[in-house]
Design a protein around this nucleic acid. Structure first.
Lengths: 337, 337
DNA sequence: TTGTAAGCGTTATCAT
DNA sequence: ATGATAACGCTTACAA
């Protein structure tokens, strides 16, 4: 079923059918209706590839996700979902590429096969080969997260540095003197994963600024890891009375460890962090946290990408999110010794 | 950068370049090397759309996911990840379509725009418009889950009916007389969501067969809903000593409600279910459960789809998964009154 | 208001 | 062993 078939059945030329489809020139009402009737009857829709070939654009966005082997976190999933949704609203399709390293066939296909009009990249490292690769290609792209030197690229990111600093200040204001940071996994931080580094920077600065003692620990992205890290902390550093965290997936484990040690939150121990709202609300008691607006960020990433596609030479833009810290019920002054 | 440019620089015709790329006819070693050198130098890769147009296939799979608005469950995410991964292993790309209802533009684009060689459908209902739609189209497809009458289609599914029945028998064997089923949300069940219905059928039959009293309740896909449903059950039906569930996301809430009522698992109350392994292992104590093999199922769905694409007229195949129930530590005989 | 025809970048069938 | 050329299905000047 192609445009020629429709044209034949309607007794017109192919171009007239095309113009009915696109509305790019006026077609007399009788012919338009006749053609439309045939289209409806045969449920015809133009071949997207042929159209893309001719138009030079694919109406498709590429989304590079971390390889599936390592389970996606809730937040990553939130980004995927919101990007796909925002793209669908703009009548754009999304092509997924699971790729971690640089030499990835799927990634190469997308970047260089002209299958997409632009790319959204997730899980950005401070030094990121994929960003380098994309920069030298002509393909518009936007990153969720940012490299160490993001100038010249469009991106959205969460201000982990500032947010964790604010968390520490909040704890200091309450009177805590010994605080800890529960970071993401050691591998991630070692690999130069942005949020891990920036959270650590923000933590260290704030701790120094307020004259606190701070201990930072890495922790895998799941409850068992959180429980292990936390119980180790509680026994080796009993003076610590509060933690700040960016590792939402570890929270259930953090909670369990606290409970196992008989520390009541927030009476005996305070917890504060950066996390998607549902993790925070699911904590007992509800977690005082900066809620990462994944939905908004995914939509904004798509918007920025569409901008770059429309005007590739325009100055790149970015959006650093600093969601306010929702005061829920997990922080209080430290217990009096 | 197109094949003509490569041909010109290498001083050969376009077809020769094409043959070097595909290897479909022998090219003399010197010319082959000369052409390959140009290709490497310019990092040329053929335009995927042009190739698709000519070859009549896109090397792309469509994956229809539930609309992003409703957060994807962990299991759904597992399917997405494993499908994408399996496709990448076969050098196939995956086009995502978030679509719930039938009249979805994104879905229509994929089905009828010839953007993909085949489609994988998730979240199948007993009566599913998308399946009907796909059936009348010529496009090969595979479903994860199955309709009420799946004959003639290829699918993979979990045997919720048999599995929940086995759970009930397990509980009955232990001596429980009053058991409950924690199902998925009422909306889902009302909409004819397969797992919800089949779990209920399996539960009812097994309960009848063993002469137990059974109560079934629907419950949203999150911890708060699980907590609410469970605490309601514990107060209104205090005689119930065990639950079986297919609602993994509700498990943390189930646990909290039990704890709040002072019921110790498994001494006072038994819990058993069908859930991804990490939910089961995260339960306290570890949950006796049939572990849904999402990874395997996603890969199998891709394999079945590739079969159908290769041989559209061959008899469809399916795979009903009945993972064994891993005996962990959440079930025991009921407390003696 | 409509039709004709060129061309998007490939692949594959003929020739040579 | 290689080259010309006709499709694939569409959009869009350019003509009429």
């Amino acid at each position: 079923m192609n445009i020629g078939e429709i044209a034949r059945r309607a007794g017109v030329s192919r171009s007239t059918v095309s113009y009915v489809l696109s509305g790019k020139r006026t077609v007399s009402e009788p012919t338009r209706q006749r053609i439309q009737a045939v289209i409806d009857e045969l449920d015809y829709r133009p071949n997207a590839n042929a159209r893309a070939l001719k138009e030079g654009r694919t109406r498709t966005l590429g989304l590079v996700i971390p390889p599936a082997s390592q389970r996606l976190t809730d937040m990553q999933l939130g980004f995927v979902a919101s990007v796909v949704e925002a793209a669908a609203r703009a009548d754009l399709d999304v092509l997924l590429s699971p790729s971690g390293g640089d030499h990835d066939r799927s990634f190469e296909r997308i970047v260089t096969g002209r299958r997409v009009d632009g790319v959204i990249l997730m899980e950005i490292r401070l030094e990121d080969d994929r960003v380098t690769r994309l920069r030298q290609s002509r393909l518009p792209f936007v990153t969720i997260g940012r490299t160490a030197e993001p100038t010249g690229t469009s991106w959205v990111d969460v201000d982990y540095e500032g947010l964790i600093a604010r968390c520490v200040h909040h704890l200091a204001d309450l009177g805590h003197r010994h605080v800890a940071l529960v970071n993401r996994s050691a591998e991630l931080v070692a690999a130069g994963y942005g949020p891990g580094h920036r959270a650590l920077v923000g933590f260290s600065h704030a701790v120094a600024e307020r004259g606190l003692t701070g201990v930072d620990l890495c922790c895998g992205d799941d409850a068992p890891a959180g429980e292990a890290a936390m119980s180790r902390l509680l026994t080796t550093r009993p003076e610590v009375t509060a933690v700040a965290t960016i590792n939402e997936a570890a929270l259930p484990g953090v909670q369990r460890a606290l409970q196992a040690e008989g520390r009541l939150v927030p009476r005996d121990f305070s917890v504060v962090g950066v996390a998607a709202a549902h993790w925070a609300e699911d904590f007992r008691p509800p977690l005082t946290a900066a809620d990462v607006p994944t939905l908004e960020m995914g939509a904004e990433a798509v918007a920025l990408l569409l901008e770059r596609i429309a005007a590739p030479t325009a100055a790149p833009r970015h959006h650093l999110y600093q969601p306010p810290i929702s005061l829920r019920a997990s922080t209080a002054p430290p217990p009096t010794p």
